[in-house]
Amino acid sequence: MPWQIHSDGSAVPNPGRMGLGAVWTAPDGTRHTLSQVAPGTGCNNEAEVRALMAALQALQLQGADDLRLHCDNSVVVEQISNPSAKPIARLATLFDEARALFNTFHQATLVWIPQHRNAEADALARAALGMTAPRTFKIAKKRR
């Protein structure tokens, strides 16, 4: 069974300070979280890839080798998963580093998910910057 990872990054303002968030579950069900400020400033895409890299580095230390990563940023998923993706000049080196780190794992899959399915990682990224996101809940109305 693979480790399940959700990562997210936030830049405030964009570009600005970067918060990194990730939550992962080990095959035995143990949950771990990461919430930290990245050094320097950057854009949302940079924050997203740095969050993914921080999670991958932590998972390496835990001896993980079979991963299923979830990310709500389609640019990050495309750049990491598709070696023939057109590089983004300003972030090319960072994406190269992330891709190399990603490829050190025996089995790793990176999938795009919609933003609403990544709420916990997003909250951790925002919390690193001292932000708390208001929680909104949809209440289904009964039809008569």
Rank of each mutant, 00 (worst) to 15 (best):
residue 12 V to G: 00
residue 121 A to E: 03
residue 25 T to K: 12
residue 50 R to H: 02
residue 10 S to P: 01
residue 79 Q to E: 04
residue 45 N to R: 00
residue 67 L to Q: 08
residue 38 A to H: 02
residue 121 A to S: 08
residue 4 Q to C: 07
residue 56 L to T: 06
residue 139 I to S: 05
residue 54 A to L: 15
residue 134 P to W: 05
residue 20 L to Y: 06
residue 46 E to F: 00
residue 112 W to R: 15
residue 102 F to K: 04
residue 82 N to L: 00
residue 123 A to F: 01
residue 125 A to F: 09
residue 128 A to R: 08
residue 82 N to G: 00
residue 99 R to K: 07
residue 106 H to G: 07
residue 43 C to T: 15
residue 17 R to P: 02
residue 32 H to K: 02
residue 115 Q to E: 13
residue 82 N to V: 03
residue 44 N to Y: 02
residue 125 A to C: 06
residue 95 F to Q: 11
residue 12 V to L: 10
residue 101 L to W: 06
residue 39 P to T: 14
residue 68 R to V: 08
residue 105 F to V: 11
residue 16 G to R: 03
residue 44 N to K: 11
residue 29 G to Y: 08
residue 16 G to I: 11
residue 70 H to M: 12
residue 60 Q to V: 07
residue 77 V to P: 08
residue 138 K to L: 11
residue 112 W to N: 07
residue 46 E to D: 01
residue 13 P to K: 06
residue 23 V to S: 12
residue 91 L to H: 13
residue 111 V to F: 00
residue 42 G to N: 03
residue 24 W to D: 05
residue 68 R to Q: 10
residue 12 V to D: 09
residue 75 V to I: 15
residue 64 A to N: 06
residue 4 Q to V: 15
residue 66 D to P: 02
residue 139 I to H: 10
residue 115 Q to P: 01
residue 103 N to A: 15
residue 47 A to C: 07
residue 24 W to A: 14
residue 8 D to L: 09
residue 70 H to A: 05
residue 16 G to T: 12
residue 140 A to V: 13
residue 73 N to W: 04
residue 89 A to R: 10
residue 42 G to E: 05
residue 33 T to K: 01
residue 64 A to V: 04
residue 19 G to A: 07
residue 55 A to Q: 11
residue 124 L to M: 03
residue 23 V to K: 08
residue 92 A to W: 01
residue 143 R to W: 11
residue 39 P to C: 14
residue 116 H to D: 14
residue 102 F to A: 11
residue 139 I to Q: 13
residue 98 A to H: 03
residue 43 C to D: 15
residue 77 V to K: 10
residue 106 H to Y: 04
residue 73 N to C: 15
residue 31 R to G: 06
residue 116 H to V: 10
residue 86 K to R: 15
